[in-house]
Design a binder for these strands. Structure first.
Ligand code: SF4
Ligand code: SF4
Lengths: 159, 159
DNA sequence: GGGTCGTAGATACTGTATATCCACGTTAGA
DNA sequence: TCTAACGTGGATATACAGTATCTACGACCC
């Protein structure tokens, strides 16, 4: 079981966009260079985030990506599921209905205990990620680093 | 992100062993046929469970696999991590220290916020699985099915 | 109004990890 | 001693994450 590497890239980029002033879109090239990431691969994830309605993309010169909503309305879970998909890592193979010891259909009317446990665990995982917003993450970024980023991307709100 | 298919197979087999009477080992061939699973592949997972100390394997004629401890001392998490490994699905790539916007080492003394959130989610997931034992799962198996299994594997405790 | 550049978007290809299978060696019982 | 079970290693097939490339669109400049 391994989470796509794109999730971390997407989270970092979303976090950086949350740090930057609202009106200034950052092009994917800038994002890629800022973190030393392969630009083509990052493009795929930024598209996924855009399709999910988390980012807003504007083409043309001086275009780029920016958050589609306030940073306190975007959760870590939103970003993760936009990139990695909402599916549960546990996929049922209906083992109980196969082989010589197969259960009869009338014994499978209710979801089996194993599947129930796995669904519960997945929900616990999701809840834990849903509880944190980008806004909360920004506040934990070291002050010195935040200051440098603001200087880099033009912190002047009177644009 | 996808969980290994072997996890479900391992869980079903462990559950069946928990249903069967304690002293009777079941050979892997019987387990495989009971659920219609590829025997060679199942062998790999049963070995993993044995190495983890959850099952006890006895070679030779009338040998097979049985639980190494009582069913109420084996959790779903035990089985899952024995087969799929204990690693967190989120692997850190240290993105923050790369690229033109790299953070300085003195800004990375504490684990970053993103990693913290992911670790927390993983722990929530594990706790949810640790809370359920094989014994509890057995009680949720339909009575008719349980009866059939006992009849099949010899329920006589006076062996 | 037309040309040009810089952006996102879509598509095709490659590499790696997972799932499956097989063949041999080892151990314990009859 | 022969048989039936587990143990181990490696070869093969396949699915998916990761990579590179090409196309379409919109703003800006002339
Ligand atoms: S529903 Fe339960 S019994 Fe059926 S295949 Fe899934 S885990 Fe196994
Ligand atoms: S520790 Fe945090 S900042 Fe560093 S690579 Fe991991 S998620 Fe990113």
């Amino acid at each position: 079981m391994k989470l796509s590497e794109g999730v971390e890239q997407g989270l970092h980029c979303a976090l950086l966009l949350a740090e930057a002033p609202a009106g200034v879109p950052l092009p994917r090239r800038v994002l890629a260079e800022h973190y030393g990431l392969p630009e083509a691969y990052l493009a795929k994830h930024l598209q996924a985030l855009t399709r999910a309605g988390l980012l807003r993309a504007t083409p043309g010169p001086s275009g780029g990506f920016r958050l589609a909503r306030p940073a306190d309305e975007i959760t870590v879970l939103d970003v993760l599921e936009a990139i990695d998909g909402p599916a549960s890592p546990f996929v049922c193979q209906e083992i109980r209905q196969q082989g010589t010891g197969a259960a009869r259909p009338e014994e499978c009317t209710r979801p089996c205990a194993i599947a129930t446990v796995m669904v519960g665990a997945h929900q616990a995982w999701r809840e834990s990620l849903r509880a944190v917003t980008l806004d909360q993450l920004v506040k934990r970024v070291p002050q010195t680093l935040r200051k440098r980023n603001r200087a880099k991307f033009g912190s002047d709100p009177a644009a």
